[in-house]
Computed example of a mutant assay.
Amino acid sequence: MILGMPWWVLAVIIFIFFSGYMAFRAMRAEKELEKHYIEREGQIYIDRMNEEREERHNRNATS
């Protein structure tokens, strides 16, 4: 007995806190991954818009 509790009760409490910590860590990592994905897709969109603008500008300049 540890602190008046059976050892397995203490082990279960420790595992509950550990599980919560790991879930929090996974959630934070997933948000970071999602943020990078959104930034990458946004950059692709901006690049495409700039290419179209440049193409339109070149077309108008040659007309």
Rank of each mutant, 00 (worst) to 15 (best):
M1Y: 02
I2R: 06
I2D: 06
I2C: 08
L3S: 08
L3Q: 07
L3R: 03
G4I: 01
G4M: 02
G4Q: 06
G4P: 05
P6Y: 05
P6A: 13
W7L: 15
W7Y: 08
W8L: 14
V9L: 14
V9G: 14
V9R: 09
V9F: 14
L10G: 08
L10N: 08
L10W: 12
L10H: 08
A11V: 13
A11I: 14
V12F: 15
V12W: 11
I13W: 15
I13T: 15
I13H: 10
I13P: 07
I14E: 09
I14K: 09
I14W: 13
F15K: 14
F15M: 15
I16G: 04
I16F: 14
F17V: 15
F17Y: 10
F18K: 08
F18L: 13
S19E: 09
G20S: 12
Y21E: 09
Y21A: 15
M22N: 14
M22T: 11
A23D: 03
A23T: 13
A23M: 10
F24N: 11
A26W: 04
A26P: 00
M27R: 12
M27D: 10
R28T: 06
R28Y: 04
R28H: 05
A29S: 13
A29P: 01
A29Q: 12
A29K: 13
E30H: 10
E30I: 02
E30P: 06
K31S: 10
K31E: 08
K31M: 09
K31T: 01
K31Y: 03
E32A: 07
E32P: 00
E32C: 02
E32Y: 07
L33S: 09
E34K: 08
E34N: 05
E34P: 00
E34I: 05
E34T: 02
E34V: 01
E34M: 07
K35S: 05
K35C: 04
H36G: 04
Y37K: 09
Y37C: 11
Y37V: 09
I38N: 09
I38W: 02
I38P: 00
I38R: 12
R40A: 14
E41Y: 01
E41L: 10
E41A: 11
Q43N: 12
Q43F: 01
I44F: 06
Y45P: 00
Y45S: 13
I46P: 02
I46Y: 03
I46S: 06
I46D: 05
D47Y: 01
D47P: 00
D47N: 08
R48I: 02
R48Q: 06
R48D: 04
M49D: 06
M49P: 00
M49A: 11
M49S: 03
M49F: 00
N50L: 04
E51W: 03
E51F: 03
E51G: 00
E52K: 04
E52Y: 03
E52V: 01
E52A: 02
R53M: 13
R53P: 00
E54W: 06
E54Y: 04
E55T: 04
E55N: 02
E55A: 09
E55P: 00
E55W: 02
E55H: 03
R56A: 12
R56Y: 14
R56E: 15
R56V: 07
N58Y: 03
N58F: 05
N58R: 12
R59S: 10
R59F: 08
R59K: 14
N60H: 11
A61F: 07
A61E: 10
T62E: 14
T62H: 03
T62G: 08
S63I: 11
S63F: 04
